[in-house]
Amino acid sequence: MILRRSLLIGAAALAMASGAPAAFAQEEPLKVGFIYVGPVGDFGWSYQHDQGRLALEKEFGDRVQTTYVESVPEGPDAERVLRQLATSGHKLIFATSFGFGDATAKIAKAFPDVKFEHATGYIRDVNLATYSGRFEEGRYILGVIAGKTTTSNKIGYIGAFPIPEVLRGVNAFTLGLQSVNPEATVSVVWANTWYDPGKEADAANAVIAQGADVIAQHTDSPAPLQAAENAGNVKVFGQASDMIQFAPTAQLTAIVDDWAPYYIGRVQAVLDGTWESQDHWGGLAAGDVHMAPYTNMPDEVKALAEETQAKIASGELNIFSGPISDRDGTERVAAGEALDDAAQLEMNWFVKGVQGDLPK
């Protein structure tokens, strides 16, 4: 059962839900809070995090009580929401967007008895952990598929903001693309939003008008998929969840973020008294990232995608192994070497073959 009440955070809505096991030496249920940058109905990033929250309720029953706040802007509103969650009895709080980082770090210091987790972040403290998925592994596979699918050799890529997470995705996609089709290029259009169907549709239609016949996205609504489906001759990839319902003939596959195992494990750690600050970064091998079914493509392309996926998951293929040069010609990764995690977390450059502005 989901109960709704209001928070003093502008237009953001607070939803409260109960569910999940007991334990952490308490009679009251463990209160777990979630803060989302988009609506839970975006069918993308926030939707998948909320699926993880719902999995908590199913797993733990009445041992936990979950609360979520959706559509929270990255800025002062995030700090207010986090503070209200911390002062209302929540002992574990998940902040699920990169732009919540500073606010989460500040509130974590103010509430040392509350445990915080920040998705895609890098600031940690004794009561503040970070976690993410290696989505770039999936984006490399998308690039391979795009390289074998395109006939125009023009790929459109809709990005949210030029942060390392998004740049890693663009670069991984382009490296996968060029591994099978060195002539193809990627044109990046910045939507400057995580979720705005109108802006995302405009960006998709713009790259289609420029000749792109495959579209990838790092924004959260299905609008680019619907634009591709309406175009009739454009293929597309889903974002964060399987979006095939919005583009039944255009979607080739999608990267699916599965947060449920992580959320269940971290709640169990709190209940057991074993929670510690950490940095978790799981990919295909860990199961944090899945690929939706490979559809609307020739069998040989599907087989190549499956082979690539298996090589990445096994460790045979490191997607950021050298030689890699940026688009200015500077060697970023030498032959025989690979980009380590620290360098990936600070990525602020495009690989060769990426077109479009790179705001500083």
Rank of each mutant, 00 (worst) to 15 (best):
residue 48 Q to C: 09
residue 120 T to P: 04
residue 51 Q to C: 12
residue 31 K to M: 09
residue 245 Q to M: 03
residue 62 D to A: 10
residue 274 T to F: 02
residue 219 T to W: 07
residue 313 A to W: 08
residue 192 N to H: 15
residue 113 D to M: 07
residue 9 I to T: 14
residue 149 T to I: 08
residue 259 W to H: 08
residue 21 P to W: 05
residue 293 P to Q: 01
residue 70 E to P: 12
residue 166 V to N: 09
residue 263 Y to K: 04
residue 191 A to W: 09
residue 289 V to F: 05
residue 101 G to A: 15
residue 338 A to V: 12
residue 297 M to N: 02
residue 270 V to T: 11
residue 181 N to T: 13
residue 19 G to K: 01
residue 161 F to W: 10
residue 90 H to Q: 13
residue 332 R to E: 07
residue 160 A to M: 03
residue 338 A to L: 02
residue 287 G to D: 13
residue 55 A to Q: 11
residue 28 E to F: 06
residue 245 Q to Y: 05
residue 36 Y to A: 05
residue 225 L to S: 04
residue 6 S to N: 08
residue 265 G to H: 05
residue 13 A to T: 04
residue 4 R to C: 04
residue 75 G to S: 15
residue 6 S to M: 10
residue 164 P to K: 03
residue 261 P to E: 14
residue 150 T to L: 04
residue 316 E to A: 15
residue 282 G to N: 10
residue 45 W to C: 02
residue 77 D to V: 14
residue 166 V to P: 06
residue 249 T to A: 11
residue 213 D to H: 09
residue 347 M to Y: 00
residue 333 V to C: 10
residue 195 Y to V: 09
residue 29 P to R: 06
residue 259 W to G: 06
residue 333 V to R: 01
residue 307 E to M: 09
residue 72 V to H: 12
residue 54 L to G: 10
residue 28 E to Y: 01
residue 84 Q to M: 14
residue 357 D to F: 03
residue 30 L to Q: 00
residue 206 A to F: 05
residue 294 Y to Q: 06
residue 190 W to C: 06
residue 94 F to L: 12
residue 302 K to V: 10
residue 266 R to S: 14
residue 230 N to K: 15
residue 337 E to L: 03
residue 357 D to N: 02
residue 208 I to F: 08
residue 302 K to A: 10
residue 77 D to A: 15
residue 288 D to Q: 14
residue 276 E to G: 00
residue 209 A to H: 07
residue 50 D to I: 09
residue 342 A to N: 11
residue 163 I to P: 02
residue 315 G to S: 11
residue 345 L to T: 03
residue 87 T to K: 13
residue 141 I to H: 08
residue 12 A to V: 09
residue 42 D to R: 04
residue 170 V to G: 08
residue 226 Q to L: 09
residue 244 I to N: 13
residue 178 Q to T: 14
residue 247 A to F: 06
residue 167 L to M: 12
residue 74 E to M: 14
residue 174 T to K: 02
residue 222 P to N: 06
residue 57 E to N: 13
residue 153 N to A: 05
residue 63 R to P: 09
residue 26 Q to R: 12
residue 101 G to C: 06
residue 17 A to D: 03
residue 203 A to C: 06
residue 328 D to S: 10
residue 211 G to K: 14
residue 120 T to I: 12
residue 327 R to G: 11
residue 116 F to H: 12
residue 19 G to Y: 04
residue 75 G to T: 09
residue 202 D to R: 11
residue 31 K to P: 07
residue 257 D to K: 03
residue 221 S to K: 01
residue 111 F to R: 00
residue 255 I to R: 00
residue 126 V to C: 00
residue 297 M to D: 10
residue 212 A to P: 11
residue 324 I to L: 02
residue 214 V to I: 14
residue 123 I to K: 14
residue 174 T to Y: 08
residue 236 V to W: 03
residue 311 K to S: 13
residue 232 G to K: 00
residue 236 V to C: 07
residue 330 T to P: 02
residue 305 A to K: 07
residue 283 G to I: 12
residue 275 W to L: 11
residue 92 L to R: 08
residue 358 L to G: 02
residue 193 T to W: 00
residue 156 G to D: 04
